Amino acid sequence: MTTDDDGAPYDPDLMAAVSDLGDALRGLVDASVRTTVPAGELHEAAATVRAVTARLGASVRPLTRLPVLDDPVRFRRVFNPVTGVGSALAPPLVLREEPGGVVGEVTFGPAHEGPPGFLHGGMSGMVMDQVLGAATIRAGLWGMTARLELDYRRPVALGVPVVCRGRVVEHGGRKSLVTGSMALAAEPDRPLVEARAVFVLPREELRAAYFAEVTDAAGRHAPPSRPTDATAPAAAREDRP
Score class of each variant (00 low, 15 high):
A17C: 10
A58M: 08
S181G: 01
R167A: 05
P227Q: 09
T83D: 11
G114Q: 07
R26W: 09
T3R: 15
D20I: 03
T136A: 13
L206C: 06
V102K: 02
M126A: 13
E97F: 06
P12V: 00
S87W: 12
G159H: 13
G104A: 00
G125P: 00
T179G: 06
P227V: 01
V29L: 07
L93S: 01
A235P: 00
A134Y: 15
G27S: 08
A8N: 14
A209M: 11
L93T: 03
L206I: 09
T48C: 11
V103H: 14
L89H: 08
V49T: 07
G219V: 00
V37S: 09
R138H: 12
L206P: 01
L177P: 04
V103F: 06
A186T: 07
W142H: 11
P223R: 10
P110H: 12
A135S: 12
A39Q: 08
L63W: 01
A24H: 14
V78N: 12
P155M: 02
R153D: 04
P99S: 09
S59Y: 02
D11Y: 12
A217S: 05
A39V: 06
P191T: 02
L56G: 08
D71A: 08
A157D: 09
A135P: 07
A186R: 08
E41D: 15
V52Q: 14
L14A: 13
G121M: 08
P115M: 02
H171S: 14
M182S: 05
L141D: 10
H171Y: 15
D4Y: 07
P91Q: 13
I137M: 14
G101A: 03
D4A: 03
E204W: 06
H221P: 10
A212D: 15
R77G: 04
L177K: 15
L93W: 10
K175S: 10
A46D: 15
F211L: 00
P62A: 03
P110D: 10
D6N: 09
A45V: 07
F118P: 09
Y10T: 03
L150S: 06
R154V: 01
V127M: 00
G121A: 10
G143W: 05
A135D: 08
A17W: 13
T228Y: 04
A186H: 07
R174C: 05
A45Q: 11
G140E: 14
G84M: 03
K175W: 11
P233Q: 13
D151T: 12
F199K: 12
R26F: 06
Q130L: 02
R138S: 12
R138M: 08
A58Y: 12
V156P: 03
V60H: 07
G27C: 04
L25I: 05
D70Y: 05
G84Q: 09
V60C: 03
G104K: 02
L66R: 14
F75L: 15
T2M: 13
H171F: 13
T53C: 14
E41T: 07
D6S: 10
A218Q: 12
A208E: 15
L148D: 07
R226H: 13
P227R: 11
A236R: 15
R174G: 03
E194T: 02
A208I: 04
V214Y: 10
R220T: 09
R203K: 14
P191Q: 07
T64W: 11
P38C: 09
A46C: 09
R138E: 14
G104H: 09
A8T: 15
T83G: 05
D189G: 04
R190P: 01
T145P: 07
P188A: 04
